[in-house]
Structures are given as C-alpha cells and as structure tokens.
C-alpha cells in the first residue's frame, strides 16, 4: 500500500525526499516492474518518488566522448534514437525487443538496470558496451561500471532508498565495429528472453582486433564471456574460431532449470550456438562496414 506519490522536481529534491522518508521512500520511473513488485508484496516502500518530471533527465546525447542516456529515457526512445542506432546499434536492438510497444513506451533503461533482473535485454547490451552509471547521492555524484552494480538476481548495489541513478554512459562504438544481438524466447513478443547474446566485434582485415560478448540471463547477472573474448583476439574470423568461443562462453553459463524457460542443459548448449552465430553475424557486418 502506497501512502504517497510524490513528484521530484530535481535530482537534489529526489534525494532529499528519499532522505526525509528514511527508507520508506523509493524512486519510480516507468514503474513497469515496480508496480507489480509492490502489488505482490516484494517492495516495502510506501512512498513513491517519481523522477519522470525532473528536467534534463530525458536526454540522449553525445558529450565528451561518451553517449549519455538520462534516467527518464524509455526503451522505445532508445530503440528509435538515430544517435543510438548509429553509434550503439546493439543497444537499440536490445531495447526494441523488450516486452511490447506499451511496455517500451513506459519502461526506462535505467529503471531496468536498477531493478537488476537478469532477464534484461537493455542491461545485457550495456554490459557489452562497458557502460557506467552515474549515481547521485546527497554527498555527490560518482560513476560506477555496470558490472559493479549487478550483484545477483534482483540485487543491485544502488540503494534505491538513498541513491539515484541519473544517467548511463558509454563510449560510442567505432565505425568499423560489427554488432549482433541474438535472442531466444518462448515467443516473439511480450516475453522475457530465455537467452540473449550481445556481441561487438572489431576487426582489421580478417583478423579480430577486439571482441566483446555479453550474455544473459543464464547466471544471476548478465556477464561478459571474458575467456571467449580473450580467445578471439588476434585470431582469424572464421567459423571454427567462433565455435570455440561459443564453447568457452557456454562454460561460464550457470542457468537454472526452469519449467517455463527451459532446462539448464538446453540453455547452456544454446549459449554456444548463439555466441557463434552472433560472432559470425558481427564479423559479416565488420566486412560490410570495413
């Protein structure tokens, strides 16, 4: 039961409200997860502090070598953003797969991250982009790598009763990069993924210069397949190499058996398949762009 629904008019105001209610207040953006969690008794806060009317948090912009996405930006806005589609297409692809159009209109990328659900399309893409989150507290602001923020299923180091994520930022992808976003799900819309793989590949000629592979939700948090990434560097871009990388990535997957979303055995095997496919597709795109 909520006792109050408040609109913050600035970041400072939001933080002040959080402080004033001493743990009874929580930030709300799109609310697509939070409303249900609250109805199901999974969110103890009774005061909602709505951040969607704070000026300045709705921007998608390139500044000081980074792309910045404000805390109010929705999945739909990211999926449609020319800047994101040009400089971080992997994120646009991921955001376009979330739920249905209505959910994408309301749900925000930052909210999705703070909620720390492993089956998060946007967050997986942010892992591959090495994104950082701007965390505002009454003491000041800091940047935290996304991998530090995720701690487990639904567990995030950001204290939503005290702190606020105001933006996410990452370096734009260089022109020669190829991207691929692979998604396996029980149906084609309105569903959380069984598995997603986000890949960004950089090549010089036929040789892989750098590879980034993020995978979710086959562990408590999305993760980077670092062994596979390291294995790829300096290798020729070919099917056998991609398959080896797939195997290395699969070795790090720890999916649970799910009656609804598939067995651990199947999902682990699919990590290998989708990583291989993502690498092949990304390599092709490198060639096209190259």
């Amino acid at each position: 039961m909520w006792e109050e629904y408040l609109f913050a008019n600035s970041v400072e105001h939001a933080l002040e409200l959080l402080a004033r209610y001493e743990g009874r207040a929580q930030l709300i953006a799109g609310g697509t997860d939070l409303v249900l969690q609250s109805q199901r008794g999974q969110c103890p806060a009774t005061v909602m502090v709505d951040i969607t009317r704070i000026p300045g948090l709705n921007r998608i912009e390139e500044r000081d070598g980074f792309i910045l996405i404000g805390a109010q930006v929705t999945h739909a806005q990211i999926a449609a953003s020319p800047l994101i589609r040009d400089k971080a297409p992997i994120l646009a692809m991921a955001c376009s797969q979330v739920g249905g159009p209505q959910t994408r209109n309301a749900g925000t990328l930052v909210g999705n991250v703070v909620n720390a659900q492993p089956a998060a399309d946007g967050a997986t893409a942010l892992f591959v982009l090495d994104a950082e989150l701007e965390v505002a507290t009454q003491e000041g602001r800091r940047w935290e790598p996304i991998s530090h923020v995720y701690r487990g299923v639904g567990v995030c180091t950001i204290n939503a009763c005290r702190e606020m994520v105001t933006a996410v930022r990452f370096k734009p992808l260089v022109n020669a990069c190829g991207c691929s976003y692979q998604r396996l799900a029980r149906r084609k819309a309105l569903t959380l993924p069984t598995l997603v793989v986000a890949v960004v590949l950089e090549m010089t000629g036929d040789t892989i210069k750098a590879a980034r592979i993020a995978i979710g939700p086959v562990a408590p948090t999305p993760y980077r397949a670092t062994d596979a990434e390291a294995h790829l560097v300096g290798k020729k871009a070919e099917e056998s190499v991609f398959a080896e990388a797939g195997q290395l990535a699969a070795a790090k997957a720890k999916p649970r058996d799910s009656l609804i979303r598939g067995s651990s055995e199947y999902r682990t095997a699919m990590v290998g398949v989708l990583v291989r496919r993502a690498l092949a597709e990304a390599a092709q795109e490198c060639h096209r762009r190259g």
């Binding site: 629904y5 609310g31 697509t32 409303v35 909602m48 209505q102 209109n105 309301a106």
Partner: peptide
C-alpha cells in the same frame, strides 16, 4: 503515448 493502464500508477497522469 500508448501505455498499459493496468500497471500505470494513476498519479502518473497528473
């Protein structure tokens, strides 16, 4: 903007 009103807090329409 189309939203699903069943999970939209009414106050968001304020």
């Amino acid at each position: 903007v189309a939203v699903t009103s069943c999970i939209t807090p009414a106050m968001k329409a304020h």
